[in-house]
Design a protein around this nucleic acid. Structure first.
Lengths: 146, 146
DNA sequence: GTATCTGCAAAACATTTGCAATTCT
DNA sequence: AGAATTGCAAATGTTTTGCAGATAC
């Protein structure tokens, strides 16, 4: 799923279709991923959602995200060691991480690499393309400072 | 550096040129990375080298590898969460991880992505391409079992 | 003898696990 | 009630840090 404003009923249906019982917490966490396209970490999700649901525990977020990963409705991004990030957009696309501000951007890249079935005799099931550098925003800031 | 059998004197020179004082441990660790092109984790390096140097500590391996990363003579691969792997070949190339046996292979891929300077307004300094799937060896094994 | 290098032990994190409490139907 | 869900607290595993001792020049 990739759009930003999806009605709750539709999310519910989507979870059910994916074999996931749409409990309140699961719904809220998936909704959060749809709304916040910043590839959040567990920490970020916890910080934000627990403002509205103070009883929510990190364990539940871990449980839920692992469930989502198993059912393949989110992607796990390991663009940087020691922080797993999550993306509700499971279509092939690339990622860009800014080494200045840390933000991870989606990059809509059409590459034949995503279509490849084999490489050097290995059978490919997943392809991840990660870029690092300075993002648009940080570049602008630096220019202004000069 | 990318070849497998490099004389120690040459490694020493390479470290010096990179601004690294070539202590015995550093030499041995870099030599290990050159010889073992399996993108080892700290654990693997420790296990193997400490057989010959029983006094070697993991802290030293972490210190040394972080030094190598800073001086950019090794690449850190975060193809899978919870395990940072190291590669002494800093030329642009892709990586393939077998989801059956866990081995990480180098893939000699010529892609224009490695040459890109900008994408969607972001300035690119690094490009990582990761594949996952079943490797050549594991595919063969599966065929034999049938 | 002063810098650097090394390594222990503790700390800092992220993530997982066991199990008990809670909720849903 | 019975099954699924949640959440605390403890365990696990990786990496970092503080600092003291060893080594090198």
């Amino acid at each position: 799923m990739s759009k930003e404003n999806v009605p709750v009923a539709e999310i519910k249906e989507y979870l059910k279709r994916s074999g996931i019982n749409p409990s309140y917490h699961r719904l809220r966490i998936f909704e959060y991923l749809l709304k916040h396209r910043t590839h959040p970490t567990v920490e970020m999700i916890y910080k934000d959602i627990s403002k509205e649901i103070p009883t929510l525990s990190k364990t539940t977020i871990y449980n839920t995200l692992n469930l989502f990963l198993n059912k393949k409705i989110v992607l796990g991004l390991t663009i940087e060691e020691n922080e797993l990030r999550y993306d509700s957009d499971t279509r092939p696309h690339a990622h860009f991480k800014c080494i200045a501000c840390g933000q991870v951007y989606d990059v809509d890249l059409k590459s034949p690499l995503f279509e490849r079935q084999m490489i050097e005799g290995h059978e490919i099931t997943e392809c991840h393309i990660y870029f690092k550098g300075i993002c648009r925003k940080c570049l602008k800031k630096r220019k202004l400072q000069k």
